[in-house]
Design a protein around this nucleic acid. Sequence first.
DNA 1: AGCTTTCGTGATAACCTCTAACGAAAGCGT
DNA 2: ACGCTTTCGTTAGAGGTTATCACGAAAGCT
Lengths: 229, 229
Amino acid sequence: MAKTGTDTPRERYRAQLREEVKRHARDQIATAGASALSLNAIAKQMGLSGPALYRYFAGRDELITELVRDAYRSLADTLGTAAADGAGLAGLARTLRGWALADPQRYFLLYGTPVPGYHAPQDTTAISDAIMRTLLDACTAATPGAPEAPEVPEVPETAGTVLAAHLAAHRDWVCDHPAPTGAIHRFLAFWTRLHGVLSLELAGHFGGMGFDPDLLFEAELEGLLAPRF
Amino acid sequence: MAKTGTDTPRERYRAQLREEVKRHARDQIATAGASALSLNAIAKQMGLSGPALYRYFAGRDELITELVRDAYRSLADTLGTAAADGAGLAGLARTLRGWALADPQRYFLLYGTPVPGYHAPQDTTAISDAIMRTLLDACTAATPGAPEAPEVPEVPETAGTVLAAHLAAHRDWVCDHPAPTGAIHRFLAFWTRLHGVLSLELAGHFGGMGFDPDLLFEAELEGLLAPRF
DNA sequence: AGCTTTCGTGATAACCTCTAACGAAAGCGT
DNA sequence: ACGCTTTCGTTAGAGGTTATCACGAAAGCT
């Protein structure tokens, strides 16, 4: 509590009410989607009259942005404590899935359909980076230290080799954390593939066909864990 | 043109105007997202006054449903002609990506954040099935006919083997088209992985980090094409 | 106790979806 | 070619939303 935590009674009340607004907003989003979120309806649910909430949020967009921020924080925290508790790549994957299944619309708030105009404020992208770093660290731990020039030199140029070169050029990614390119490669596969199965499951696309999302996820995860993924 | 194509001049005008409405709607969605689509604004753009469009669409939802239908049709057609022109799995993958990049919001209309209440009408899911079948056929062609009991019998139960059993139980999927379980497996990997990279690219999540989506897609595709994917 | 800041309100403007009623235009049958 | 019928586009209106403004009341601070 650096600057905001000037624990005056008004500040406390303010924070409390903001939190209650966000609670209602989360419920509303979970049941009807983010586009159906209505500041007015929330006010009525709380026994307040329309414009009252504008004392607490600049507008609908700021409320949503705040929810996005919270969602990023929640995911970063969930994944972070799992990693701190010694979870490996598989554990992190299942933790991610659990987090997403607990509230699909919250997942889509972060990784779903983007709004063309919208640009996330810088602090939320910072939290997003923290999430990525947690994943990348787990990948680094799970990937045997590559000799950095591992394969036959005279091999024909495959998409894999050119990607490796590209990755090598982008080692220093978020500044401080240079990772071996093998770890980066695994991280990217991890992220994109799990997002693939997970988002299709959450959107209910496996429901029509009779497939079990649990099995699909586990199988994809197993492939990701293999030495040559 | 069975029933609707009763080529009376009124029918023609009607179809023409509906098409123009949809054109404007597509533009609006492409630039501001589906949630920003306004029937009223479209009417004004066309020089009509508000409620006029309700003669042509029952409401906003029907217009969006129609756009979803068109998008499914467009994708099914694009993929179908590519396959008919002899495109293999790689060709279909690149065709899919091209289609998605041409209008990202249209892709998200089909595979993006779902609206909790919404259930797609049956005919749209039928077109979706046609798309899946095109992909599955390509997978069947690309997958060597598995002896149906390929691996060591006494192997420990991995996620892969239990998924294979699950898949074997669901061979008859969309009724008519029983495919070898190896092809189904490849198809699912194809779909989920490509959706993973593609949707993250379209949502701009690779923009922040410096990665080249082209390379990521190609690398993922190469992995998918390998005999053991 | 008094001053000041904040809160919640009602009024208002500008959007939106969608229904209803009416006049005008166009097609269709004779 | 004329009249009937159907369809079209309009305005009016109910009910919803976001968001701003000005005012009175409540609460905190000194």
